[in-house]
Design a protein around this nucleic acid. Structure first.
Lengths: 299, 299
DNA sequence: TTGCGTTACGACTCTCGTAAGGATG
DNA sequence: CATCCTTACGAGAGTCGTAACGCAA
């Protein structure tokens, strides 16, 4: 048994048990992985994969259990390398941030700027995705940290750090009927509504609020980002419900923001990363800057 | 980086950073480990060991952190091998039991006998040691399970399974003054006492009971096992305090056992094993038999 | 026929052991 | 000077890549 053979098992799982594709992933020819797999299964004394003829179909029960340990080994090996790299030179490296559009545009700019100044040698990869996919990215080691508001609960393998609490605002063109009088969920629900796609940026809080009031707003447009919503609100399609932080008083002076703090429960944006994974020092610095920025926004 | 290099790190730690002894442990010549260590440190880019000249003195801070991951890898690798062995053939193997004299003599015989019948191919290694050392044996992977009463608390990495609850009895030769009238801690403390060594078989419960009554018995003999205590009680040296299960009505008919249940708090004997370590099926069977035996003793 | 996996064989790389040498207490 | 570690070099084991083959959709 050696580390390459264990990596091979991972590669096979990631390629739906296709030896040829796994070989590509491992940067060796296909016959090599065929042999290595045979050697490993011979050494362990039992097949690790279900086969139909020569084709691999999936893991055996033994294979399943072994894969869990292989993942542990992979993680530990990665930690060793990260630690060594970080120790030798913490000025170079890469930072993979997974987040949603809203956070990328309205929360991250200042921290990223500060980070660039302190760590000019670190490459930043920012991946935008849907909140439920962010956790996948973490688990697949394709992201170091994830920043988002929803879908981050009940996962024991994650560290969750509350970043900041915010609430929603309604946006309407100047002169809109909602700008007069007191805002309420009933009045909102009477209008065509534009807001975030399900699973994005506190959409669940919005649904909860309307649901508890037994209201069923007509959501005529759902988008992943605030800018799209604003655009169509400007076109007069209806009232937008977006995060307060996405309303920019300067640029959005043609729109009126109506505070919904008392109507829709507040949301908490969190930073998440894998509990068992070592974070390089620059990554911790970035998290600290994020928390500082959140603190600054709050006041 | 490969598994052998990581094993080498463990070997070095276990040999107080002596390359020559580590080489013996790894079954290779010393020059080989010297080179492998250099290769690893070169690959990681930083030294893992503090050196004075050519000698290794200890781990660097980086080395310390890496060793923690190496231990994880070692454990996972061991789990893979155990799983594969268990899956292929669960009739052969070894079971390392670490326990104290008392448990080995009075709790284990029946389960061991049943185990031998069901798994005649498994070799049983029974290690007797002091309770605080039992945990070390588990952590050093020199024992699969440990059975004892004391010193098993507050260790997050252990699974603790309460096995059975018992209490102490006082033993005296027939006709001893304590056999008349009602037993009490005061009357006990007035006699020379023979009992377990500190850390053994509920000794702490004994001390606690006397301590809370502000009594200071004269413990003239402390032994790790009940038989030694019985022997000297028979010689008339004083009153023995032993586990109830160690008093055998048949063999010990010359001694009188006085129940101390109401005087000394009960003790709980537990089975412990490493949380993160895979236990082969026969090991689980043995644990089950132990729990059954404990259940039988209780009734 | 194409895609997927296995087997055979020669080339190469890697690691080991032997042996000699340097440093340290 | 004995112990501990390093370096040099040749032998052997292990792994890879090429290529040919078997099998199934």
């Amino acid at each position: 048994m050696n580390l390459n053979q264990l990596e091979l098992l991972r590669a096979l799982q990631e390629t739906q048990f296709n030896l040829s594709k796994a070989a590509d992933k491992m940067h060796v020819v296909q016959s090599a992985v065929s042999r290595q797999l045979q050697l490993l299964e011979t050494e362990l004394g039992s097949p690790l994969f279900e086969r139909h003829g020569k084709r691999l179909l999936g893991l055996t029960p033994l294979g399943e259990r072994i894969m869990a340990e292989v993942d542990q080994i992979h993680r530990a090996k990665k930690n060793i390398q990260t630690m060594a790299d970080d120790f030798r030179d913490n000025r170079n490296g890469t930072l993979h941030i997974a987040t949603t559009h809203t956070q990328a545009k309205y929360l991250l700019p200042v921290p990223v700027q500060k980070f660039r100044r302190k760590y000019p040698g670190i490459k930043i990869y920012m991946v935008q995705s849907s909140p439920d996919n962010l956790i996948n990215l973490l688990h697949q080691h394709q992201a170091d940290i994830a920043i988002c508001t929803e879908k981050l609960a009940e996962d024991d393998s994650l560290v969750l750090r509350p970043c900041y609490q915010w609430h929603h605002v309604a946006i309407v063109p100047a002169g809109h009927t909602l700008t007069e009088g007191k805002i309420s969920l009933e009045r909102l629900a009477a209008q065509p509504v534009l807001t975030y796609s399900p699973g994005f940026t506190g959409r669940s809080a919005i649904e909860k609020a309307f649901g508890e009031a037994d209201l069923h707003p007509d959501i005529i447009l759902a988008a992943a980002d605030s800018d799209v919503i604003k655009t169509y609100v400007r076109l007069g399609l209806g009232v937008g419900i977006i995060a307060e932080t996405s309303y920019e008083p300067g640029k959005d002076s043609d729109l009126v923001a109506l505070d919904l703090e008392h109507l829709i429960p507040a949301s908490v944006t969190k930073i998440a990363y894998l509990k068992q994974l070592y974070l390089p020092s620059y990554c911790c610095y970035f998290i600290d800057e994020l928390l500082k920025e959140a603190e600054a926004k709050r006041t």
